[in-house]
Design a protein around this nucleic acid. Sequence first.
DNA 1: TACAATTGAATTGCACACAATATGAATAAT
DNA 2: ATTATTCATATTGTGTGCAATTCAATTGTA
Lengths: 152, 152
Amino acid sequence: MARKHATDSPLLLGNQLCFAIYSTAHAFNRVYKPLLDKLGLTYPQYLVMLVLWERDGEPVKSIGERLFLDSGTLTPLLKRLEAAGLINRTRSTEDERQVLIALTPQGQALREKARAVPQAILAASACSVTELSAIKNELVALRDRLNAAVGE
Amino acid sequence: MARKHATDSPLLLGNQLCFAIYSTAHAFNRVYKPLLDKLGLTYPQYLVMLVLWERDGEPVKSIGERLFLDSGTLTPLLKRLEAAGLINRTRSTEDERQVLIALTPQGQALREKARAVPQAILAASACSVTELSAIKNELVALRDRLNAAVGE
DNA sequence: TACAATTGAATTGCACACAATATGAATAAT
DNA sequence: ATTATTCATATTGTGTGCAATTCAATTGTA
């Protein structure tokens, strides 16, 4: 018998998919950092900008739904983006509970500089678009099952 | 022409593997939370315990290397584990720069309660061990390439 | 042996992330 | 119309993460 404790196997760090995801997320962050520093953004801020570049003028709620983040995270983050002059936060006139997030001209303009980012990431991953896309699809499917499990 | 801006495709949130990883990591965290609450641990604290259950008495540095975390993150985290009575922090006599982390009896005992965690996660993922293992291996390979890219 | 360079932790400062709570606005129920 | 409930955002508190700095201990080198 080579193994002493077969029941420990699930508790081994190297066997845990979850740690693989956790550590890969950090690795991505380290690759993104120098690229995003040039744009003056953190990674979560970059995600918010991606959402706004796709659809401008969204309320905080729908940005949070797309990114799976709540107001406790987004409110201070959005205030920093506003302080940086990239967005405006204005309370909706139709529904005063909502705060609408709109890009400023600088926020719009930043999109051009951001185009260089994905290719740099692709290069760092040393992987084909096809392969990355395959992993992405598997993860999205897994993520949705996990979120479904949490929501009972 | 169906697509107006083919060059925008890499900037679309849904196309980014990185966001898939980021959001899956959060989804895992949400699944882990109620399970780890019973153990009185956060997810990063759980990772440290996994390391210690594999090898006890390690210095902070080597724990950090295994988890890709630095002292700025680990020092306060380890102090909280010490305050919880799960570990002891003692400065090494051979090399006084090092702080050795050792499990207390309570820390050892917690391992038994932790055995229930991986199966619960597996159930939430609604996925076979084989599939999860395959994704894990792809991610570890990707992570290592990313870390290599950062280290020049 | 001196003494510069390196190393391992700790500290500080900033930015998430989320639970819990609060607040004001909108909607539903009576 | 009044009240209760729900909804969207903000606030507070705790716990990561990481860059930058500090400090003491160790190692390398002349």
